[in-house]
Simulated scan of single mutants.
Amino acid sequence: MAYSNQAYVEHVAVRVRDIQWYINFFYEVLGMDVREIDGPVDAPNQYWTIGGMQLMSTPGFEAPPSNDAGWLAHLGIMVADLDGALNAAQRWGVKELPQGRNWLQLPDGLAIELIQARGNSVAEALAVNPRA
């Protein structure tokens, strides 16, 4: 079975130190393509994906410790192919968290939980245009 890198979140805005790393990770691992860009394409101020991520470039950003209330606990992301997404994520040097192999910590402390979707639910969710 070919890896189907599709996922859906609508939408979460996060501050990130290295916006280009996040753009590449969410595109290459989860298939979240660009919906909108604020600023120059090669160094955007903000970047929105189809699938619900809003990345906000904040070069000096320092995330509070993971046990601090107020910091985003984690993103739950439905994926069409969990094993494929986990294999693709390994190349990015992300850290597996104690909760399980599908829990990953990205740079700046952002944690994501990748969840295997049933059937064609991810493709069906992505086909919906809530802004139409």
Rank of each mutant, 00 (worst) to 15 (best):
R17Y: 12
P40D: 14
W71K: 15
Q54R: 13
I37Y: 09
H11K: 13
N24C: 10
E96N: 11
T49R: 04
R91F: 13
F26T: 09
W103H: 05
F25N: 01
G31R: 02
A132T: 08
D38M: 12
V16E: 06
G76V: 06
A69I: 15
A7G: 00
N5A: 14
Y27A: 13
Q99D: 07
A80T: 05
A125P: 09
R91I: 09
D108W: 06
A88N: 12
V16K: 10
E10Q: 08
D108Y: 09
G93D: 00
P65Y: 08
R91N: 10
P40S: 06
V79D: 02
N45L: 12
A73N: 15
T49A: 02
W92S: 00
G119M: 03
I19W: 07
Y22H: 04
Y8N: 13
V34H: 05
L82V: 04
W92M: 04
E62P: 01
A2H: 10
L114I: 01
N45S: 10
P65E: 15
A89G: 02
Y3H: 13
E62N: 11
Q99W: 01
Q116D: 04
A132M: 08
P65S: 11
Y27V: 07
A125C: 09
L72S: 01
V12E: 05
R17S: 15
W103F: 11
A13G: 12
A132W: 13
P107D: 00
P65T: 11
S121Q: 13
L126D: 09
T49H: 05
P130S: 05
H11C: 09
A69H: 12
G60Q: 05
A117L: 04
Q90D: 08
E113G: 04
A127F: 00
L104E: 01
R15S: 13
I37T: 14
Q116T: 03
Q46H: 08
H11F: 14
N24D: 15
T49W: 07
L75Y: 07
P44Q: 00
V128H: 11
A43M: 12
D81W: 03
A111K: 12
G39L: 00
H11L: 06
V128Q: 14
I19S: 05
R17V: 08
G60K: 10
M53H: 04
D81S: 10
Q20Y: 02
Y47M: 06
P44A: 00
Q6I: 02
M53I: 09
V29Y: 05
G119Q: 02
A43F: 08
N5V: 06
V29H: 04
Q90W: 02
E62W: 01
A85E: 05
L72K: 09
E96S: 06
P40L: 10
G109V: 01
L55H: 00
W48V: 05
M78V: 06
M32F: 00
Y3N: 07
V12L: 15
T58M: 12
H74F: 08
F61E: 01
W71P: 08
A111Y: 07
A125E: 13
I19F: 07
N102Q: 13
R15P: 11
M32I: 00
F25M: 01
Y27L: 13
A69C: 12
A88C: 04
I112L: 08
D42P: 05
A13M: 10
W71H: 15
N102W: 07
D83T: 10
R15H: 10
A125G: 14
F61S: 01
W103I: 04
M78F: 14
V14C: 05
G51D: 03
